[in-house]
């Protein structure tokens, strides 16, 4: 049989198959170390597209200690609509010590409870990875990106084959260096933004539509 015909038939079957099994919406998880601005980003996306918020933002690490899901967020870019579920996850850390919370004026009991919940939060965040279709990995541009947490998460997301966008957040701060993040993870798309100030946020939406749409 003609090889060209077989190839075109194969391509047609593949597109029909894709059409049948195409997900109508993507589940996107927002990941990163504590205090990278995950909730600020989640709130920014929700404020922009739903007028809502997902959780409280704080300078105290591990403010988000349970994963939070918001379904059916519609993002419109250049006439195309991307519908996503957003999961804001607790910050991933290798060490959690209640002493770190004491300086924020918490009682020892409260700090210990926070540490325990934060630890449970890390486990919950990691478990969510099994149920996601894409990841927004938020990093603080003012910090060294070469951390065990960042490198391990990127490696694992690559191994899972999940689409990944790295967000270089906090570019509004004077010592921010998104280039350092790009240099650390050159194989991935890095989008520099300020979730707090809304800087370059349109580029993020466009890149999300390309990557996850």
């Amino acid at each position: 049989m003609n090889m060209g015909l077989i190839t075109s038939l194969k391509a047609r079957f593949r597109s029909i198959f894709k059409w049948f099994f195409k997900k109508d919406k993507m589940r996107i998880g927002i990941y990163g170390p504590p205090n990278a601005g995950k909730t600020t980003l989640a709130n920014r996306i929700l404020r922009d597209w739903t007028g809502d918020v997902i959780g409280s933002e704080s300078e105290i690490p591990h403010e988000t200690r349970r994963a939070k899901l918001r379904e059916g967020v519609k993002i419109e870019v250049d006439g195309k609509t991307l519908t996503i579920d957003i999961i804001d996850t607790p910050g991933i850390a290798t060490k959690i010590d209640f002493h770190d919370f004491l300086k924020y004026g918490m009682s020892e009991e409260e700090a210990k409870r926070r540490a325990k919940e934060a630890t449970e939060g890390v486990i919950e965040a990691i478990k969510w990875l099994d149920d996601l279709d894409g990841i927004l990995l938020v990093m603080d541009s003012t910090e060294d990106p070469y951390t065990q947490v960042n490198v391990t998460i990127v490696g694992n997301i690559e191994a899972r084959g999940l689409p990944l966008l790295i967000i270089a957040n906090k570019i509004d701060l004077p010592n921010a260096s998104p280039a350092r993040i790009k240099a650390a993870f050159p194989q991935h798309v890095v989008v520099p933004i300020s979730a707090l100030k809304g800087l370059n946020i349109d580029t993020l939406y466009r890149t999300m539509a390309e990557k996850f749409g």
Binding site: I92, T94, H99, A111, A115
Partner: peptide, 8 residues
């Protein structure tokens, strides 16, 4: 109590 080490 309150001090944890996680093996990511």
């Amino acid at each position: 109590p309150g001090m944890y080490e996680l093996n990511i």
